[in-house]
Design a protein around this nucleic acid. Structure first.
Lengths: 205, 205
DNA sequence: AAAAATCTGTTGCAAAAGCAACAAAATTGA
DNA sequence: TCAATTTTGTTGCTTTTGCAACAGATTTTT
């Protein structure tokens, strides 16, 4: 998926796409009701963040290369302030859905490639969301952990998985209390289901 | 989104799309690893169903008009048998992702409309999935319920919401024990947060 | 219209999870 | 490099949830 090629070749008269750079810590975009912005992360990492009414910071999603975000994909309402913040330096493509939605009159090739590529990215996003739903649907912390490890194991084709984030963030991702999760990891180890070394988990069953 | 128009006008030499009819109870499709089928529900209702290793039936998703499904959107592995079953008579468009992915040589107009329409449907799907994730991320049954009611209330612009499915299925959707959910609904009523009449919930705060 | 199946509502009890608070280890950054 | 911050690991206690088992109401099927 070479978005730079698309960007360089697309007919500027028909599609308005911006490429912007952000430094670590910068706000890439605020989610605005009734706008439909689409952002594609070309390089770097970023988080979708919300502050709830009690002022607690929630990391709702995190993004890597080829991830797609923007309020187009998220139910936005005025109660929540949602924004995406760079956790590393980032290159991002930014445009509005209505600006690319329909084929331009010029019938330009790269516009069509853009739409097809976008479709592919959104499908990937949907698959990831379904994995997340699958995990969150589990009733116990144990099942959530095992289900998460199992998905990592399948995608990496290995019984030893490397956690892509800290245990603190894992608890957030599974949406459980961290200390309760730690307790359950300990139980899984003593009961022989897994072993653990730093951020490597080995599945033993 | 008029898929019949697309179907009637699309160049049959470039895109293979089938329209099929199903009776209530029929299996619309089994999810197969490494295939990438896409189905669009034109009319009727259907459920995505899994039987886990203990033989328990799980309703994972349910589909209405304009919903899109197929293994393209779901992480499939050989451990689970996944299939979609009609809960009412259905008309369904069925095709393979690779058959429509790239623009045909003929450059036919309706092929492009199909891809754009598909993009729109997948974006909608993604927004719904995010709502579901939002709800499932809540830690307590009470928060899940209130969060669900609040989303229904926002989309219907009314403080009185009509539950689109039975309480039994609501418990499934929220992924909680039904009796515990009933208890919590009762608590919400006695504490004055909501009132309830049949399948109508009124939000009182 | 009767029988079967599903859904709603309720409860006691056991298990699991959340909360709070703390210390030690590891990482970051000034 | 040393101080500050974040992460990991642990535990006692409380609250919430799940489970099991009912009975009654409602809906569907025959």
């Amino acid at each position: 998926m070479d978005f730079n090629e698309i960007l360089n070749n697309i007919n500027e008269n028909c599609v308005k796409i911006q490429k912007k750079n952000f430094k670590k810590g910068d706000i890439i975009t605020y989610y605005i009701e009734n706008r439909k912005q689409i952002c594609i992360l070309i390089s770097g990492k970023a988080d979708l963040i919300r502050y709830d009414k009690d002022g607690n910071k929630d990391i709702i999603e995190n993004y890597n290369v080829n991830d797609i975000f923007g309020e187009t994909f998220y139910p936005v309402n005025t109660n929540n302030e949602l924004f995406v913040q760079a956790t590393e330096n980032c290159e991002v493509l930014i445009f509005l859905y209505e600006d690319i939605k329909m084929k331009c009159k010029n019938n330009c090739k790269y516009h069509q490639i853009l739409i097809s590529s976008l479709l592919e990215l959104v499908i990937n996003k949907s698959v990831h969301q379904n994995s997340r739903i699958e995990i969150l649907s589990k009733r116990t912390i144990r099942e959530k952990l095992l289900s998460y490890f199992s998905i990592l194991s399948t995608t990496s084709s290995s019984k030893t998985v490397i956690l892509p984030f800290s245990l603190t963030n894992l608890a957030d991702y599974l949406s459980v209390d961290r200390s309760a999760m730690m307790r359950e990891i300990k139980n899984l180890i003593t009961e022989g289901f897994i072993s653990k070394n730093k951020n490597k988990i080995k599945i033993l069953y």
